[in-house]
Amino acid sequence: MSVNILVVDDEEDIRNMLNRHLSLLDYMVETAANGKEAVELLQRKRIDIVITDLLMPEMNGIELLEFIHEDSPMIHTIAITGYVTLDNALSCMRLGADNIIFKPLEDLTELEDSVKSVEGKMKIWQKKLRELRGMKPSK
């Protein structure tokens, strides 16, 4: 099963870079330029992981995390920010983000590892769900 990732960043070059990198690692990647676009996309598509910048116009990353936390708690989130503050980090934690990674992402492996660990968690649940289906075969 493929993992669908949504990359949200108002900087196009960063969006494209992450899109390329994650696509090359065989993930399905969508992009959005701000929180609002991301919310619209989330209504239309199945997304497993949202990787979002925090400082954005229209709707910022914290607001997006709030929306996801309330509306689709199944979606995993990873924050990326150049604006490193304790407040930001705590907000992300409170809103259930899996990680907060600081720009300039000098080493992308931290992001990759976060995505992989989310993927691992997802796989565990999928396995459980399969087992459940196995136990109660629907006739």
């Binding site: 070059d13 960063i14 390329r20 150049g82 300039p104």
Partner: peptide
């Protein structure tokens, strides 16, 4: 920071 992010990432 922002341009550095995509230079580094790419």
């Amino acid at each position: 920071n922002n341009p550095t992010t995509f230079i580094s990432g790419n």
